[in-house]
Amino acid sequence: MSQANPTQSGLLRRIVSSLLLLPFLLAVLYPFLWMVFGIFKTNREIYQPLSLWPMKPLDTEYWSGIADTFFPNEFSMQNVRDLLVGKWVPFWDVFGNSLLVSLGQALGAVALSAMAGYAFARFQFRGKRMLFLLAIALILIPRQLFAWPLFSWANTLGLSDSLFGVILPGVVTGLGVIYFTQVFRQLPEEYLQAARVCGAPELRVFLTILPLVWPSLLSYGMIHFILAWHEHLVPMYMLTTESQKTLPLALTKLYDVSQSVSQGAQMAASTFALIPTAVLFAVCYRKFKSSLSEML
């Protein structure tokens, strides 16, 4: 990886930059800390506002007051237990559904887009330009814009209230096709020549070079998994049975302004919902970043 500005990066510069980043880090991380501590709080504690104003930075009581609101009174696991035994929503079903939907969408999208990208990058054919424009149109006109006609069509196909009704429409992606077109375009021609040597059929050539681009396959798979994990509108129309729903739907159900649902359970569900995508991204971080650096 190239280091563009190696000189003059004195210690002072590094310290100042870190300090400048600090308020942004606080603004991002504070709500997440609040969420995690919220798991152990009662509804009353959660809705109790943090009172910073008027500021008395020298008063110890001021600070202990803030600490009292920020930290839970006791670390009770009741909310987690309620959530996991399915007091409010069938949590395990919902979590499993989300995993299935996101994995299915990611695998399907990687397979379809890698093949299409290979065709765009490696062949000249009639209608190529038009098809490529179609891929861009696909990005700009996402299926969320016509979620209702999509639902009624899926219903005709017998896919409503089935996870396939969410997975199958989710495997078509314009972003993926454009990404893989770029990936295969940058692959040195020699690799392909080597793979073609024995006059192998083009599909064999494709399968031979796939391992060479695995960081890109992984990177796109990860991004697509995350997008699928967050999808809200299409599953909302598609899935009606409680045990068929996905996490974003369950989370909106748990967020209850009338406060009959314990909001600590909502915080617990939110925390669990963040874990898969955060772990996935952390694991793929380096590969993803370097494959982006090479491409952009």
Partner: peptide, 19 residues
């Protein structure tokens, strides 16, 4: 630091909105 900053993008929008 980069990972910490992009944490909100990894969070489902419905969670984000509540937070």
């Amino acid at each position: 630091l980069t990972f910490a900053l992009l944490l909100p993008a990894l969070t489902p929008p419905s969670v984000l909105a509540v937070l």
